[in-house]
Structure formats: structure tokens, C-alpha cells
Amino acid sequence: MNIAIETVELSRSFYEKGTGGDNSFWALRDVSLRVPEGMIFGLLGPNGAGKTTLIKILATLLLPTRGIAKVAGFNVDNEFKSIRPIINMVSGGENCGYGILTVEENLWMFTQFYGIPTDRAMKNIGAMMEMMGLAEKAKTKINKLSTGMRQKMNFIRGFITDPKILFLDEPTLGLDVNAARDTRKFVRDWMKNASEPKTLILTTHYMMEADEMCDRVAIIDGGKILAEDSPASLKKQQSGGIVYKIVASYKKIDEGELKKINGVTAFVCTPVAGNEHMEMVFNISSDSVLPALIEKINSLGLSIKSINKDEFTLEDAFIKLVGKRLNGGEAPNV
């Protein structure tokens, strides 16, 4: 099987402005990955984990500080001209294009940057707008589009050049449930109907999305890859316990008290409903730990609203590995 993406001990540092280079930080540290062709590969990590830096290096927009990165066998360092014709990228919340041009004109413009003849480009644009439910907005100037519609246009822009390797950096950010579902379906259809193997690198803040779409995922934090496998295998590897979600009234507590309980292997606490309640997710070794847990919660003066026993999800695996939720919510190290 051909390798679409390969990185060997890839690292990237940035200097903080005005420090004369003294204050550098590592956005990526010794990342080694191999992504075979024809795969949807997810990159999961909290904000600042290094996902976007990795994508920008692979998309030839940023040079590595050290290490090797290859895309379709070409080195991003000095063979970027061979990489650019076969890749594309879509980022969430992107604001690209020109407001004075229509959706159709903007998409046409971007196809021209890849040398696609106008008649073929217009045919593909029409078909993709139909698939994404954007056909009726074809003649609308993009400064009149809603955020969701604009993101759909961006999405089409990424696919319209029929790239071999596509980078999707939080592509469903800001989309409503239906639009996000449409885009996921669009991606699946595109992968399925492609005449040659396509590879998709996806970063997302939505665990469900990663679980549903990705063949493999890498969990990244602090610029390092903490784990890499299929979602099912990751869940299996990291589970080894039972997950309980307990919703209680909100109160500032000493989280250390909950850590101390024997049998609690992971714990994360997030305020919900505008600090009215808090959701506590516990990973415990067996059901027998539950009574002690409830007793401790009550002794802390919290009033329990609900207790649910959950299946171990990719998010639970993430919490266990990273120590916090993907969208914030600190987890004490237990």
C-alpha cells in the first residue's frame, strides 16, 4: 500500500516576537506518522496541541524546524512544487474569496488557480453545489451568504480541484447539525466514488465526528503524539473500566477529594447550563466503586441530579490520555 503522508521526528518551533529568539516554544515535537493512501486520518487534540501546525507543514505552508515530512513521497522542504497540484485544504471559519463575486464565480476563480479548463470547472461546480444544497445560491454574492452557506462554499472549494490528499482543519466548525451532517455525507460519498484512492487528514473538535468518519486517529497534545490507532482499538486499549456521568448542582469543590477514592482511574468535571450544574465523568475500575463515589459527592455538599452509566467513547479515551476534555474542562491527574 502506498504511503500518502509520512513524517519522521517532525518538529517545529516558534519564536515569541520581541524576545530576540530567546523565548521559543515547540508547537510540534518529534512527530512520526505514516498514513496510507485511501484513508480518513483524524488528528485530535485540544487547542494549541499542534494539529494546525502539522497540517500547515504538510500543506507546504510552513517549514519544519527539524525532521522530515513527505506528502505523496515528496519532501515538503524542497519538493513543494510537486505537492501543491495534488493537495487542497479547507479550514473551519474560513473567510476566503471575494465578497463582490458570486458563489459560482468565486469557485470558478479557485479552479483556475489549478489550471482546470472553464467548461469542466463549471460542470463540476454545478454538480457539487447541487450535492451540498448550495445550487440556488450560485448567483448570490458571497458577502450575502450566512456563515453556514459560506462554509459549504469553502468545502466545495477544497474538493472541486479533485485533490489526491485533502486537509480538513475543523471543517464543520460553526455549522448547524444538518449542515454538518450534509458535509460528512459529502465526504463519505467523495471518498467512495473517487476513481483513485483519496486521503483525507481531518482535525476536529467533535469526537463523534472523528469516531464516525476516521479510519485511524492520532491523539496529539503539547506537540506530541500520545496515541495512534483506529477509534475502536483506541477505545478498547484505553477502556479497562466503566464510565459514569454524574450531573450535580454546581459548587466549588476540592477535586482532589474525588481523586483519592480507590478505583477512580480518570475524572473530568465541566460546568454546564451556565454554572447551574456540573457534569462529572468518572472512569472507575468496577461498579463496586460507585457507592463510595456517591457518598463522597454527597459529603462534599453536592446534590446529585442524575447518574448515567455510559459506553466507553473516544472522548473518554481522549480524557484518559490527555487529562482534559477536547473542548476545555480540566481533568485532575488520577
Binding site: S91, N95, F110, F113
Partner: peptide, 18 residues
Amino acid sequence: ESGNLTLYMLCPLNTMSV
């Protein structure tokens, strides 16, 4: 600022042509 420059750099087109 709008993000277009990223796309210009990403595509195979020479930026000078843009």
C-alpha cells in the same frame, strides 16, 4: 487577513501570476 493568501500559496500557481 482574509485567508486568501494562504490559498494562493497552497495552489500550484506561481504567486507572481496572482
